[in-house]
């Protein structure tokens, strides 16, 4: 059930397109190539997860799509326009807590809109809609310090969503949460996403999470990374209760695990190059 990455010549209009993108960092120890050559595309309304061994450049890739890093080779474009700086149509959610602790939940969610210059009434209204969507309506006037980790991440998701981005970039957003919270919030994310259907690029270490959430999983190789394989997830949408128990789920999980294991050993095993 593997397919080769879509070739640039067949790209559709509203895709996020990676063309031979690469990133080489200059460090004190010399040049490190984090990302070698990634080519692929994310079609509209698709949820794509990226998994791979630690340090293989997944975050770097995301940062490039978000316009925070400029690729040293190749390019990424959204809707035909190359990404050179952070854009209005991308929004990011980080693993670390990024809530502004002196602002209320409402003002946190409205932050992206505030920066764009949206007038107060409008941005509060849009923010409230998102707060409702993520289920935090009662906590609108609370400060982040009064919220749990999972709730703070929901605030971050609401903030990103409030900007109505074409592409939602999520860098291991649930990595800092405990297992139980992670499962809950994963289900919540899908519930919200079914309504908004942005393109999502989602980085995770958790293979189960990747299978559960996505339409497609890209497996990255060890550094310098390329897309080793693209695995299409053909589980039903919306995901039913008990998805995790489906035999197909298990198959996909095992397949991904075997791919990742090889790469992980390259990174961590006896023959591994030190970072």
């Amino acid at each position: 059930m593997n397919q080769m990455p879509t070739m640039p010549s067949t790209k559709q209009e509203h895709d996020v397109v990676f063309e031979n993108i690469g990133m080489t960092f200059q460090t004190a120890a010399g040049a490190t190539q984090a990302v070698a050559n990634v080519t692929g595309s994310i079609p509209e309304h698709k949820f794509v997860s990226i998994i791979g061994p630690s340090g293989c450049g997944k975050s770097t890739l995301l940062d490039m799509v978000g316009g925070l890093l400029k690729p040293t080779q190749g390019s990424v474009s959204i809707d035909g326009e190359a990404v050179t700086a952070p854009r209005r149509d991308t929004a990011m959610v980080f693993q670390e807590d990024s809530t502004l602790h002196w602002r209320s939940v409402l003002d946190n969610v409205a932050f992206g809109l505030e920066v764009k210059g949206v007038p107060k009434d409008e941005r509060h209204e849009r923010a409230r809609k998102m707060i409702e969507l993520v289920g935090l309506r009662q906590f609108e006037d609370h400060r982040p310090g009064q919220l749990s980790g999972g709730m703070k991440q929901r605030v971050a998701i609401a903030r990103a969503m409030a900007m109505e981005p074409r592409v939602l970039l999520m860098d291991e957003p649930f990595g800092a949460l405990d297992q139980q919270t992670r499962q809950f919030i994963g289900r919540e994310l899908l519930r919200i996403w079914e309504k908004t259907r942005n393109r999502v690029l989602f980085i995770t270490h958790d293979i189960q999470e990747a299978v559960y959430l996505s339409d497609e999983v890209w497996v990255m190789s060890a550094r310098p990374s390329v897309v080793k394989e693209v695995v299409k997830i053909d589980l039903p949408r919306p995901r039913p209760e008990g998805t995790h128990a489906l035999p197909r789920f298990r198959e996909l999980e095992d397949h991904l695990w075997s791919l990742v294991k090889v790469e992980a050993e390259k990174t961590l095993g006896p023959g591994a190059q030190l970072a």
């Binding site: 978000g66 316009g67 925070l68 700086a85 952070p86 854009r87 209005r88 991308t90 929004a91 990011m92 980080f94 670390e96 807590d97 990024s98 502004l100 602790h101 002196w102 602002r103 932050f111 992206g112 505030e114 920066v115 764009k116 900007m163």
Partner: peptide
């Protein structure tokens, strides 16, 4: 926290917006 700087970058905040809306309130206490 450096993550706040990354956040401001990701929403394309101008330097002055970063200073006034993020740095100043974060640093004041």
């Amino acid at each position: 926290k450096p993550i706040l700087h990354k956040l401001a970058n990701s929403v394309n905040a101008s330097p002055s917006q970063y200073y006034v809306k993020v740095l100043l309130p974060a640093a004041t206490p």
